[in-house]
Amino acid sequence: MSENNKLMVTFDKFKSELAGLAQYVDDARKGIDDIESAFQMSSEKFPEASGQLSMVSGDLENAANNIMELIENLVDENDKSKALVDELSALAQKLPEEDAKTAGGLTEKLDAVNTSMKTIMMDMFANTSFHDLSGQKLKKVISTLGTVEAKILEMACNVGVTTSELAPSDEKPSYADGKSEMHGQGDVDKILNDLMQKNLS
């Protein structure tokens, strides 16, 4: 085999490897698309990383806000409970001495429970910062992925890899009104029902 031929074989192998790598990144990105709740990319080209990031971050923000709202409600209820305990304590003072002592002990215990619950609620609050932390980590991951994608595409273009050389991904079955994207529990239920009916028939 001449030097030229050897070079061509090596180049073809490199090109094939590069096409495989580009396909791998595209498939990985489609995998990320699948776990997004309300967003589906056009999958023929590498999609915009920033779009995915903002959607995932948005989902996290909604989740964090929903949890915080629930905790805020719990804190309000806890405050009401605390006020009731204070009223009970005041009433207990008016009881005969022995009963006042017993009732006072019980309200003290109730007060301690309230305080402990409040501390737990505040820690739950602090833990909802997962949104902020996950968002920052996501930014770094997507930024790195974006750079890798751009480099691979640039290399693929430079060595003449065409989109036809990227193996087509397996088509996913379409269930919801002819679209493959899913938007919520309603769609999931519809798919489950469809599948269950098919299995029964």
Partner: peptide, 13 residues
């Protein structure tokens, strides 16, 4: 803080 959720957490605490 640029994250509204973080501002809410800190304000509540």
């Amino acid at each position: 803080d640029d994250f509204s959720t973080m501002r809410r957490i800190i304000k509540n605490i």
